[in-house]
Amino acid sequence: MQAYKLTLKLLFTVMLLVVTSSTVIAEEMDGKKVAFDRKKGNCLACHVMDNGDMAGNIGPPLIVMKARFPDRAALKAQIWDATVKNKISIMPPFGKHKILTDNEIEKLIDYLYTL
């Protein structure tokens, strides 16, 4: 009986390990980092936001986001592929072109809603 219990415990542990190690454990990045990092969102290249350094002025300032984007889906759509609304938008299609992952975009949006 005792032996069974042990084996079971062991097996479960091994299973858990296999499952977690096969899902890629991506390095966690918070939303602000995604927005500011030049290799990620680089939103500062074009948008004034959150007192970020050396912000560009190509796009509108990202402020009072909650009031202006009550619909989360609409905000996500703009980030996913800005060319849907404006065919020649200079804003990169972050989701469509796999510049950011879905997870990164969700975190980015959480962060934008604090602005």
Binding site: Y4, L8, L11, V14, M15, S22
Partner: peptide, 20 residues
């Protein structure tokens, strides 16, 4: 029942190793 659980675990384990 313990046997069943044990066998089930073994099977899933081998399957998941092969799938990966």
């Amino acid at each position: 029942i313990k046997h069943v659980v044990l066998i089930f675990c073994l099977l899933t384990l081998t399957a998941s190793v092969f799938a990966a």
